[in-house]
Design a protein around this nucleic acid. Structure first.
Lengths: 335, 335
DNA sequence: TCCAAAAGTGGGATCGGTTCCATTTTTGAC
DNA sequence: GTCAAAAATGGAACCGATCCCACTTTTGGA
């Protein structure tokens, strides 16, 4: 493999000039540029990225930490981030912490990124206690967080207004005439799950239809967690004409189980989800859900991280509002 | 940040000894090891991965090229690969070619990986003409391919027996008594889509129920492609008691649309998918499908790549057999 | 106790870029 | 045509590891 020196020799210029030409920094005369271009062509020169990283002290690597890769949610995130990074010639390395058993494990996954000398790190964490994020933020300036908010990380937190999201769901159901409503939440230790849940309950109270405690099931944002929670709800014997599910995966599981039991959606029971992941138009019936702008948020977080890390000025926005995505899984209450 | 030299000085040993201690290669006396360990602790030393890569001429980076990141299929792949690589202390960088318009674009995505000096590359390509893979294989020894087979890459191709898969689907439907069967395929220029399709048709002939040409719709393996194909099938006016879909995404779209039109699955029409991606238990009804061992294949491909690249001896297997995963979307023909 | 083999050691050369700086060349206003 | 400012240049120093090699120390069998 040819090196800068080889190119410099063949082009009859100094190595500094070649470097400047290649990286596009500093100035190079037209004449030199042409000679170098020819030499590069002839030698089929390609800069060595490790040498470049070593001497420039930047790896062009961005680390992305996610708590799980089950289901479409984090995948939509990854997909968006990969694309935004590729546009800037940066590369993503990924740490999926779903096999982590303890906080220590989760930190080990973060170290897996840090040890690689990422220039910046993007974390999606909804567990408040998951990291001592503030401490990491001190040590690691180029850190940006999604689905989380702390004072220490002002300007580096990206989030969706789940308070509004929860209320939108409540209003939608009440507008359709549903008074007896059940809900399956995510793990309430997760910030985003709790926010939407609390807001949903509160809005139901405000609208005059408080949700009875026996109609509240704490589940988890996974297929397995959804199955358990759905089973618990159906076994509880309580009645309800609509169910708000904390995310779309759980809603999907619920619809499947209701179908299995011959309960019609939305005829007998309306189901509303949350997130609006890619499969929502294709459940049967198509899922009404609270649209969370996941991709926009991911892109913004990524942009801001690139700005901080490389001094770019890409557009971004810190807060996003969800909206209602009404499809066929919700309908008027029969009562 | 501390360097080997700092550690060496503090520990009172040579830099070579520190290097050997850190990397675990070569021998270091117990006494030195202890002194170095103390110094590492004290200085909070962490080796610089770029310097390491430059001098050892290995990046510990594995590039993964996928044609798309829509839907669960490639995500399951990514998830498996990330995990297998992390276990070996390697990192994955990703190139998603779904925005590529031309072959040139697709190659640019591959260059995006190669320019990063990946130690090895994993490609999932079902388009035969997509790359001149053989040429890349010459230039780039540590290359492994999924869903593809060429002579030049003997021992480096990983695949699922889609011929068998297609036949399993046919047999299942015929056993249930279906004689008028329709099928929605993927793009037939894709090897995997064609294989299962051809085998399916052939097996239907063998079983005495050839599929009439008007009951064959060429679609694509995406949600949008599925929607179009489903619309085409339903508009065609042909009748059928069962549909074989070339992948699960399309099957999901079909089920949703049938539900929308009040056509019962499997009462009026049986639907069988292909792949067995993660959502299949949760469609309504749960999707009968041909189980393709995607995760096993991905892990094997990854293992063999690691073997080739780093001289490891991880277990792997080149060919995989699909099996039937019968759920609720298929049932006996009424006729 | 002796000695060859094995284990352990220090430090310099090297990987292939970037960056700095002193120096030369070019530019353009007068 | 002159001259100061701006542009361009070459090459050495540097980034922080690994690896090699010549050398010293330890080991253990006779």
């Amino acid at each position: 493999m040819a090196t800068v020196k080889d190119v410099a020799k063949l082009a009859g210029v100094g190595s500094g000039t070649v470097s400047r030409y290649i990286s596009g920094t500093g100035s190079v005369s037209k004449k030199s540029a042409e000679k170098i271009a020819r030499a590069v062509e002839q030698l089929n020169y390609r800069p060595n990225s490790m040498a470049r990283s070593l001497s420039s002290r930047r790896s062009d690597l961005i680390g992305v930490w996610v708590p799980s890769l089950e289901g479409p949610y984090y995948h939509m995130m990854i997909r968006t981030i990969e694309s935004a990074l590729r546009l800037q010639g940066k590369h993503m390395i990924l740490a999926n912490a779903e096999d982590a058993q303890s906080n220590e494990d989760r930190l080990a996954h973060l170290d897996y990124l840090i040890n690689r000398d990422c220039d910046g790190i993007l974390i999606s964490s909804s567990l408040q206690s998951e990291f001592e994020l503030a401490r990491y933020a001190e040590k690691f300036a180029n850190l940006v967080v999604m689905n989380h908010h702390t004072e220490e990380l002002a300007g580096r937190c990206f989030s969706i207004d789940h308070d509004l999201g929860g209320r939108l769901a409540a209003r939608h159901l009440v507008e359709l005439g549903h008074a007896r409503v059940a809900t399956i939440t995510g793990r309430l230790s997760a910030l985003d799950a709790r926010q939407r849940h609390v807001a949903f309950l509160d809005e139901m109270v405000r609208l005059g239809h408080p949700v009875a405690p026996e109609r509240i099931i704490e589940g988890a944002f996974s297929y397995a967690g959804g199955e358990q929670a759905v089973a618990a709800l159906l076994a509880s014997g309580t009645d309800y004409s609509a169910v708000f599910c904390g995310n779309d995966k759980v809603a999907m599981v619920l619809i499947a189980e209701l179908h299995h039991r011959g309960i019609s959606v939305p005829g007998d029971v309306s189901v509303i989800g949350y997130d609006d992941v890619e499969f929502t138009p294709y459940t049967a019936p198509a899922l009404s859900t609270v649209h969370a702008p996941i991709e926009e948020m991911s892109q913004s977080a990524c942009h801001q991280l690139l700005n901080l890390t490389y001094g770019l000025e890409l557009p971004y926005q810190e807060h996003f509002e969800p909206s209602l995505s009404v499809r066929q899984s919700t309908g008027p209450s029969r009562a």
